[in-house]
Structures are given as C-alpha cells and as structure tokens.
Design a protein around this nucleic acid. Structure first.
Lengths: 335, 335
DNA sequence: GAGATAAATGCAAACGTTTGCAATATTTAT
DNA sequence: ATAAATATTGCAAACGTTTGCATTTATCTC
C-alpha cells in the first residue's frame, strides 16, 4: 500500500533516466532500446504505477473512450428491459475492449439536448456509438453534420449521412412472413410499430411477402414491449376473435408476450396460430413452444461498429453495412 | 460548425474577462456575480463550448466517473446473457447519472489481473461498483484492502471488508421454499450452484425451510444458465423420473429453462411440479404459466450502491446493507 | 466624504503527461 | 583511427483547466 500516488517523474528519478524515456518506454515506443523498455515496464509494475489518463488525454487530445448511447424513445421507456438491446451493448463492450478502447455508457435521457456536443466537445469520448435509431433521426443527423464521429446500430438501408450497421430487416421480415406462408398461413398479423426505424423495414418485408402471395395485410401497431403485445393480442381475441392464423412479431419479446395471450386462451401454437419473432434472444429457445425467429448477428455487428468508428476517427469515409440474418425455425412455426 | 475547438481562454477573451472568471462562472461558483455567471454561461452555450474534461480532471484530480465491473466467473460466460445482471447495470447507470456521474463499463475480462489498480491509479475512475460477487472474493478483498473505493452488488451478509448491497437472499430462499411447502410440496429440488456467492445464501434459506418442516433436501447443482437448467431437468426426468413435486430455482432464467423441460414432458405446472424463481425479470410475468418469483428491488439497490460509493469517496465509513425482497406469487406455484 | 468592509475579478502557478528537436552514445564504413 | 551514419536519450514547452492569493471595485458606516 503506497501512501502517495507515484508519478512519471518519480519513476524517472528512481530509474535515473529522463521522463521522456519513461513515457516512451511505457508506451512501447521503439525509439527506446528494448532492454530499457523492459526494465522500465518492470519497474512500473513493481511500483504499481499507471499513467495518469487525464494528463495523457490532455496532452494527446485523444481519450480512447467511446460513448455508447442507448437511444430509446422516451415514452417506451420500458423497452430498456429488452434483453436484445443490452446484449448488443455487451457485445460492443467486448469489441471495444479488444481494440483497447473503453466504453462510456449512457442512456440518452441524460444527454438529451445536445449529447453529441456533450461527449465530443468536452473530450469525454473520441466517438459515439448510437444503439437504436429510434424515431428521431434528425437528432443524429445533426450530430453527423456537425462532424461528430459516430456510427449507428439500426437499419442500414435508411438513407443517412452517417454509417449504419444492422441487419437486413427487410429480408428478415420477408423471410419470416414467407416462411409462415409456406407453412400454410393465410391471415398473418404484423405485430409491432411500423413507424419505428428498424421495424418499418421489417414491415416492408412483411408486406412484400404478402403481396407476392396475394394476401391481405393485418397490421397491429403496438409499443415494442412484451406486455403491450400481450394486452393487444388479448384484446384482439376478445373483440374480434381468432381472425388470424399467424403472427410476425417485430421482436422476440413481443412474440413472447403474444404467445402468452394465445396460450391463456388455449389457442394452439403453432397449429392455430404460428409465430415468428425477431432477434433470437436466449428466451426464444427456452420458451415453450420454442420460438422461431430471425437471428441477428450481434457479435459481428459489434465488431463492425467499432471498426467503422475507428476508420472514421482515422479520417476515412465509411459506408453503412448490411448484416446477414438467419431464419431459425423452431416449434412455434412448424405445423 | 466551428472549424477549431474553442477553449476557455478564447471565451475569456471574447467576454473581456479573465479565465478564472470564466472557469468559476461555468462551475456556478457563487464568488462570481450572478449576472456575470449568466452572461458567460449563455456565451458558452452560444459558442458550443464545453470544458475539456481531461484538463479539469488533471487539475482537480477527480473524474466524476465510476467504473462498473460485471464480475462473471470465466467459465460460465453465457450468464452475461442473463437479463437480470444487465438490468442492474442499467439501474446503476440511471442512479449515477442522477448524481452527475458517468459510467465506465467493463467486463472483468479486460481488467483481469489488477483491475482495481487499473481504474484507480490511472485515474480513469474515482471508484468502482462491482456487480456480482462471483466466486473469487479475495480479488475484491485485496482491492478493498488497498484502499480502492468500491462497493459490491452481492449478498450483504457475506463477511467482508467492503460494503455489499444486495437482497436478503437467505430470506428469499426461505420464503420461496416455505411458500411451496405451504402449497403442499413435499419433495423440493433446489436448482442452482450452492457454491456461488449470493446463491449459497438462497440455498441456506431453502435448507432452513425444509428443516423446519422435516423435509429432505434435493440439491441439483448446475451452471446458472437456462440451458444448463433445461438439460439437467431433462436428464433428471429421464434417469430418475419425477421424484420431486417442486423446484426452487436460483434465478428466473434457470426456472424458465426448467419449465421448458417439464412442459416438453407434459409435466403439469403447477399441479405436478410447482416452481419459484428469483429476480422477477420481465419474462417471469410473460412466461406461461407465469412464474412465481422473488423480486429484487434493483432500483433501490442501485441508488444505494451509488450513495454508498459517494460516501466512501467522501471519506465516510459505510456498511453493507440488506434490501428487502418480495415474494411474487403467480401461476407456477398456485395449486 | 473618508476609511473600512465586503464583493467581484485577475494573476500565475500548478496538475502529469507527451513530443519535436537537440544532444549524446553507439555502430559502421573507410 | 576518423568521419559519417544511426541508435538512444534528454530538454523543455506545450495541453486547458482550477484555485490560493492579491488586487480591484462596489458598498457601507459614521
């Protein structure tokens, strides 16, 4: 237990070299002889010394920190409990750490008015990863226009002046719906919020699939939460009866909420109503019947997000990128 | 879009005052006349100026950052997908932001060898919140002994030289088990890892409840994941048949995994086997049948964690604190 | 209206690194 | 052995704030 925090100068004195040498040695600068580097690094470890990041950051004008903002629509606050979003964050965390970067987490609430400015001008972070497009893209757009280095997890096909990484939502919606049609579904409900960034694309895919089979749309617009799904399916069954034989849900949580309502009313899954979700969260596999879904490759996405952000920081121009999705068929859709 | 980043000095020149005045004004220091303060703050906003945190931190030796470490056992990596842990993190995030603190997120992997030192000596953060005790408390203990300001989410009854905030796990285990007994269960399985920090206490509660009703223990030790639960219950049913009539699961995810195995074999819930979980994650309510569980007050816990950390940073001595739990009875345990 | 007190502002020295350039030590070529 | 090239180290000036103390300005007291 050292009484005082030791600093670079002290270490230099201790080793009988200049601070420049210590600084370079600790940063593994090849200017310094390998032997000296080793010695100084050992000494540093011995004395439990770490470089003061505040000082380095001030001097270098770099933080090696990336701010991650979970972009929720204010009213639908509960969607923060969606395991999927949090899984994405956790993958981003891993990807950042692998690059020696750190993750400053923030819900958008805090940084509401001018978050971009808040993080970048104050040099809290070098760049920003926004998780979720939400409904207010202008917010992000302004930031990008102002030259803030940022990347977004969202729907990559959305026209934008900033790079978006995300799944092929259109294809996902298309595949999910087609899959249900191929298994005999005729009246397929789309359960979700077609206004919402990523989800509108899923809806488009759904529509396309229906159109090419000359089927009719049944859109049920809800908040993107399981409880909202539960309630609305419940209400639907009560008021209109079982007028549908399949559901394309905009997320697994929504699908699971719907499933509960169906099961409570003894609607057989998948025989009476078949279901496909989106995301492939852990629960999709564990639910009973297990939930067919569109798997998103979050791990790959995370590395891409980080990579693109770094490229952007290096001054390169980077483009949006679509990530393949995969239809996972489980019990909920097999008749 | 400003071409150059503006700094305090520039702002001072612009306003025709000294940098001291600007600095104080922006920090709302009452030494400065209210009128001047307002003017300067307005000017700062106008010019999109924010204080350079690197410089402030260097000067003040404070970061206003708290590092949050998710403390997973290496082998059980998948438990990162447990929504509960992530919910705790997200509550901590909120609580921190409310105090004007920022959250530096880290999985323990990165900071493995000497994480505490890593965060504190390098002045990346003022203090640390560890989420989850894991199995290796010595790690934390050393850090605490070295004077690192830290608080832990875990079992508060664990003897420790650092403050722990967490639920009354013993009582939770006791209540869950007693509840099942009162509803007629005779052969109650405890499903979880009794070696694991928080969970061992839940197991103790379970044991106590059984003892006071002269019932026998059936401990099934598993990894704390839903898939592990699913597999082991499956195997149990296959090899030993249905020798139990209730399950106390160490977490909701585990309970849900078990439920799936039961449902697949047409074991009726709750009639043949009743279940109680732990955590009250969103899925507990959405599963079918809905899952009885022990609710943990994560929001309160988060504010406490933050509060205790701040007190510690202020030099106060702080103690561990137990948080009340609540038995939520749903369908899975009602016969 | 002068002196004393209080309020508001300015000066200048830190905080602990990094880095361009200069200086020294070492190696190589002749 | 000497000059030239190269490898290694050191000097000192930033980076942009904050803050103790000194100084100026405004307010009060008699």
């Amino acid at each position: 237990m050292n009484n005082k925090k030791i600093k670079l100068t002290d270490l230099a004195k201790l080793a009988g070299v200049s601070t420049s040498t210590v600084s370079r040695a600790l940063n593994d600068n090849p200017l310094i002889k390998q032997e000296t580097r080793d010695k100084l690094q050992r000494l540093a470890k011995e004395h439990n010394f770490s470089l003061n990041t505040a000082a380095s950051r001030l001097r270098t004008q770099k933080t090696n920190v990336v701010a991650v903002i979970i972009n929720l629509d204010e009213q639908t606050e509960q969607s923060i409990s969606d395991p999927f979003l949090l899984k994405v964050v956790s993958e981003i965390n891993l990807a950042l750490n692998q690059q020696g970067l750190e993750l400053l987490l923030s819900n958008s609430i805090m940084a509401q008015d001018d978050w971009a400015n808040y993080f970048i001008n104050s040099r809290r972070a070098d760049g920003i990863i926004v998780v979720g497009q939400g409904k207010n893209q202008t917010n992000i757009e302004n930031a990008a226009n102002a030259g803030i280095p940022l990347v977004v997890w969202g729907d990559p096909k959305t026209p934008s002046n900033y790079p978006i990484v995300g799944s092929d939502n259109y294809l996902g919606g298309l595949q999910a719906t087609t899959h249900l049609i191929e298994h005999g579904a005729k009246n397929i409900v789309f359960l979700g919020d077609p206004e919402h960034g990523e989800i509108s694309e899923r809806h488009r895919g759904y529509s396309a699939a229906l159109a090419s089979h000359k089927l009719e749309q049944h859109v049920v617009s809800i908040d993107i939460t399981s409880s909202s799904a539960y309630q609305s399916i419940n209400q639907l069954l009560r008021e209109k009866g079982l007028y549908f034989d399949a559901i394309v849900a905009c997320s697994d949580m929504v699908a699971l909420g719907a499933m509960k309502a169906l099961k409570e009313r003894y609607v057989s899954i998948p025989n009476d109503v078949a279901l496909v979700g989106f995301d492939d969260i852990a629960m999709a596999d564990i639910s009973h019947p297990s939930l067919s879904t569109i798997r998103q490759n979050t791990q790959y996405a995370a590395t891409l997000l980080v990579q693109k952000l770094m490229q952007q920081l290096a001054g390169e121009k980077v483009e949006s990128q679509v990530i393949d999705i995969e239809l996972i068929t489980r019990q909920s859709s097999k008749r």
